Simulated scan of single mutants.
Amino acid sequence: MSDTALNMDAPLSEATRNNVRWITLDRERQRNPLSLQMLNVLTEALDRAGVDPSVRAIVIAANGPVFSAGHDLREMSQRDGEERAAQIARMREILDCCSQMMLAIVNSPKAIIACVQGTATAAGCQLVSACDLAIAADTATFCTPGVNMGGFCTTPLVGIGRNVHRKHAMALALTGDAFSAEDAVRFGLINECVAADSLVDRTTELAERIAAKSAQGIRHGKADFYRQIDMPIEDAFVYANEAMVRAMTSADAEEGKAAFFEKRPPNWGDA
């Protein structure tokens, strides 16, 4: 595995193996908060991986017992002697950066997998929901505990509510309770729950399998999926039909069909 981030002060690390970029949150002692620094650095890492032709899939992982505890509450709280307007401006900046980071995942041309080894809380749970796929250890838990502190996890529900049935989303938000990885599979928040000691191997296998597919097909297919999913069904069919025509007449699709008939591995074009 080759390291691609050399800044020892960065709150995450980056490494690439077999065309998979691993982006690992690395503030274990602070429970990997989505601080303003973390959000900016993570967005930059996603952007770099998105334009790197050697990267064909991305994994977001974390070190320590917590995947991410969400926003840094110290950044969100009013400081001694601070005007309320200054606090509100800082909160809006953090939330805007968080929204942009989540959109960077959705809009990335690469498939992105969350590898969840521990607790994913609030915006950390939202981070899991933003990824295209998610695999969690059977010891992982998921919660949106804003209600326990007199607030409400409104922004996390933007992503979570687009992954799971609204009653499951509201159960998370209204109770503030932690739900198991098995529950998260049942809710539709994650794809798989595996034994903790096999999490990295299972995520690696899935990521490398996706990385072996056509980068062109994944790039356009991912964008088309997210574009049509919130359309009325009639509009979605119209859009998807045209997207399907484009996909099935692309250079990689022609190569894929030829490889199928010739019973050989396909030779995909450049990413």
Rank of each mutant, 00 (worst) to 15 (best):
M1I: 06
D3T: 11
L6V: 15
N7T: 14
M8K: 11
A10R: 06
A10T: 07
S13G: 13
E14F: 07
A15H: 08
T16R: 10
N19R: 14
R21A: 08
I23G: 02
T24W: 04
L25C: 07
R27D: 09
R31H: 10
L39H: 05
L42W: 10
A45M: 11
L46E: 04
L46H: 00
R48E: 14
A49G: 11
A49W: 05
G50T: 06
P53V: 14
S54N: 12
A57F: 05
V59N: 01
A62H: 03
G64N: 04
F67L: 06
G70E: 03
G70S: 05
D72S: 12
L73H: 11
M76W: 06
Q78G: 03
R79H: 12
G81A: 08
E82I: 06
E83V: 08
A85F: 07
A85C: 02
A85I: 08
R92T: 10
E93T: 09
I94R: 02
S99A: 13
Q100T: 09
M101L: 12
L103N: 03
L103M: 08
K110M: 04
A111F: 06
I112H: 02
I113H: 00
A114C: 08
C115F: 07
V116K: 00
G124K: 01
C125L: 13
C125V: 03
V128R: 00
S129A: 15
A130F: 04
A130M: 08
C131L: 09
D132R: 01
A136L: 02
C143S: 10
P145I: 11
G150R: 04
T154Y: 06
L157R: 02
I160A: 00
R162A: 12
V164Q: 00
R166F: 10
H168G: 01
L172D: 01
L172G: 00
L174W: 03
A181F: 02
A181W: 01
E182C: 08
E182F: 08
D183Y: 14
R186P: 01
R186H: 10
L189D: 01
E192S: 06
A196L: 04
R202Q: 13
A207R: 01
A207Q: 03
E208L: 09
R209Q: 05
I210M: 01
R219S: 12
H220N: 13
H220E: 15
K222G: 00
A223V: 09
D224Q: 13
V238R: 15
N241W: 14
N241A: 15
E242H: 15
A243P: 00
V245I: 15
A247F: 12
T249D: 14
D252T: 09
A253C: 07
K257S: 04
K257L: 14
A258C: 07
A259C: 07
F260Q: 11
F261R: 11
R264P: 00
P265L: 14
P266S: 10
D270Q: 13
